[in-house]
Write a protein that binds this DNA or RNA. Structure first.
Length: 448
DNA sequence: TCTGGGGTCCTAGGACCC
DNA sequence: TCTGGGGTCCTAGGACCC
């Protein structure tokens, strides 16, 4: 918590619906719902006209239809349009300060202290009003709600307080006055489960939460969450505004209109999801070592399986192969409602000079040699020499050797162990590295 | 015609290493 | 030779956010 209200939170109001109403005049003033229109879809965003009927984000679309009057527009999301609008707003924000943290397509935190602004309550109020005006003008009528306070916690609560098109400035020193009467659910990180547990102990407001001993909170929620709640209830929040965040995982999933049972169909869906994930990895210049799958059964129970390799990949076929192996561990005879594929433990190839030209591949197991004879291997490629001779060799206690590396073209591998049988020279084509990519066997580092 | 899709963070237990 | 303790990595599940 800072000594002045220097953190600003902007949240665009019902953004998906607002963009649709902006782009289509006939939708203005009418209930609009954007989301999954098909059988098992849910509401992404309901316009304020639709919220009057109790429709909310994440509500099943079927339920929303039962509540809403005829004449309501049910629309599939147009993400490209929302992204363009989002970018217009983000550009405005970066004009105010270099320290902008985009939380989602329609939300961001700004550190005004990094922008050299007048941080008095009056100064930030004028700045926020100007920003709101500029957002509405630049987007053609999409409004944003703004909160300015001494911490992320209070700024976010402030932007929520007078939606839509709202503005709340919390002067330093008034944080607790604002915070304590609120319901515990207003705190970020307090979802249905936490709220229920708190209610069970008679804790309904943030003020009541602030009276709960730390030991109880840790007991109920664990160390991290317990401590977090204890601090938030006191408006203690030192979280900084971070402009760049590294991705930790990439995933794709799909809920089927009808539960799937056909194993062939399941494998095909898995392949498609794997290709989607791998494509997005490559688009971002990323690759990952862990492949995850997610299976949701018809009764909504969800299981995950994961497998971590030694080397990262962004190859859809390899991801699919590993995903299939994981799926084989899951009982799908009762049907599958949702299937998901993810890749995590991400690596950034661009940072590794050795791999800057080509993607790494694992060449098939090459040689059996008597243990504990160390293997020395020289490799050459017709293309750029991406292997350093003698390096990148792995072998296990049984003497099996593998070569890691990257590159296309013909690769010659010579085995030059001092007492190894005269090394066979093997040459093989790596014109398609994917075909030579195999699952890494377990291996141990050669002892020096 | 209940319950999306993309993420992040935390926990707990086991394996493994020193 | 009745028994350690810390650290790291991995897996599975769950809560939460937009």
């Amino acid at each position: 918590m800072r000594g002045e209200p220097s953190i600003l939170h902007v949240d665009l109001d019902a953004m998906f619906a607002a963009v649709e109403q902006r782009d289509k005049v006939s939708l203005r003033g009418k209930p609009v719902v954007v989301g999954g229109v098909a059988g098992r879809g849910v509401v992404s965003t309901a316009s304020y006209e639709a919220r009057v009927f109790g429709v909310r984000s994440a509500m099943p679309m079927a339920q929303a239809r039962r509540r809403l009057p005829s004449g309501t527009a049910y629309l599939s999301p147009r993400f490209a349009a929302y992204k363009r609008t989002s970018q217009v707003v983000m550009d405005l924000l970066t004009g105010l300060t270099p320290l902008v943290e985009q939380v989602s397509i329609d939300e961001a935190y700004l550190d005004l202290a990094a922008g050299g602004h007048d941080l008095s309550p009056r100064g930030v109020t004028e700045l926020a009003l100007r920003l709101k005006r500029e957002i509405a003008e630049a987007t053609g009528g999409v409004t944003g709600s703004v909160g300015v306070a001494s911490s992320k916690l209070l700024a976010k609560i402030g932007s929520e307080l007078h939606k839509p098109d709202g503005l709340t400035v919390v002067p330093a020193g008034e944080e607790l006055t604002l915070l304590h009467p609120l319901a515990v659910g207003a705190l970020g990180g307090v979802g249905p489960a936490t709220e229920q547990r708190l209610h069970r102990s008679g804790v309904r407001t943030v003020g009541q939460l602030a009276a709960v001993p730390l030991a109880d909170l840790v007991d109920w929620f664990g160390v991290a969450h317990g401590n977090g709640l204890f601090r938030l209830a006191r408006a203690e929040d030192n979280r900084v505004v971070v402009s760049e965040r590294e991705a930790k995982s990439v995933s794709a999933e799909e809920t089927f209109d009808v539960d799937l049972t056909d194993p062939v169909r399941l494998q095909r869906e898995l392949d498609l999801l794997s290709a989607r994930v791998a494509g997005r990895l490559r688009d971002s210049g990323l690759s990952g070592r862990t492949v995850n799958i997610k299976v949701r059964h018809p009764d909504f129970t969800t299981v995950t399986r994961a497998l971590t390799r030694d080397q990262p990949t962004d190859d859809g076929r390899l991801v699919a192969q590993l995903a299939r192996r994981l799926l084989a561990e899951v009982n799908t005879t009762g049907g599958v409602r949702l299937l998901g594929v993810g890749v995590s433990t991400l690596a950034d190839f661009a940072q590794d000079e050795l791999f800057s030209l080509e993607r790494p591949v694992l060449i098939e197991p090459l040689l059996m040699a008597p243990a504990p004879e160390p293997l020395a291997v020289a490799t050459e490629t017709a293309g750029p020499p991406v292997w350093r001779p003698g390096q990148d060799v792995r072998h296990d206690e049984h003497g099996s050797g593998w070569v890691w590396g990257s590159g296309l073209g013909r690769v010659t591998v010579r085995f030059e162990g001092p007492r190894t049988l005269p090394g066979p020279v093997r040459t093989f084509a790596v014109d398609d590295p994917l075909l030579h990519t195999t699952d890494p066997p377990d291996w141990t580092e050669p002892s020096p």
